[in-house]
Amino acid sequence: MSNSLSEIPLVHVQNVSKHFGEGETRVDALRDVSLEVHPGEVVALLGPSGSGKTTLLNVIGCITEPSSGWVSLDGEVVYDGHWLRSDLRKLRLEKIGFIFQFHNLLPFLNSTDNVAVVLSLAGFDKDESKRRAIELLEYLEVGHRKDAMPANLSGGEAQRVAIARALANRPRIILADEPTAALDSERAGIVMDLLRKVAVEQEAAILAVTHDEKIFDRFDRIFHLRDGRLDDQNT
């Protein structure tokens, strides 16, 4: 194995299975799934409804515990038959940024504070949190809306603020759940350009669950999930 940073996967999932229930009610959501995502990569996770996309995203996001397998994030093995860390929320705070379909901004915080809240949770002081939040909003070209409440933002603006929040604590893994589903083609393209910019400039790995055909050509690789298995024909 090379020592080059780009060759160490930021997301490394090996033989991960996840089932819910037992006996007749047992549902195998993931079966022996293995994948790697490297720094600078933007990859998509595709599959029909119920194929296990969200379960895989939850496993990588340390939200759902796998039934078996091995998971490493940013070079740290976090699951090997059981969680190896008890502070999974802290792990998420340190290593993972989340982007949601409907942005999930906190409705009672303005754009700046929605970004700053992550930094505040990470222990940054108030001024530093605010300064970095505004920097990020400007980086994502939504700085002019820094004082706006989520209810007053357009879909594209809200999603850019959500991306800023996902990037706030400089995570190297970004997990996105249908990040462009609520956007038109033009805005979906802008969001994908931004994710690409983040992946390249911050050497981050971006894994997005999507059904949005209009952005398929924006991904480096596409993983197809079917009945909890990754297809051999991943593109």
Binding site: R89, K90, R92, F98, F100, N104, V117, L121
Partner: peptide
């Protein structure tokens, strides 16, 4: 959302 982004 708060739990997901790491709020204790």
């Amino acid at each position: 959302t708060l739990k997901l982004i790491g709020a204790p």
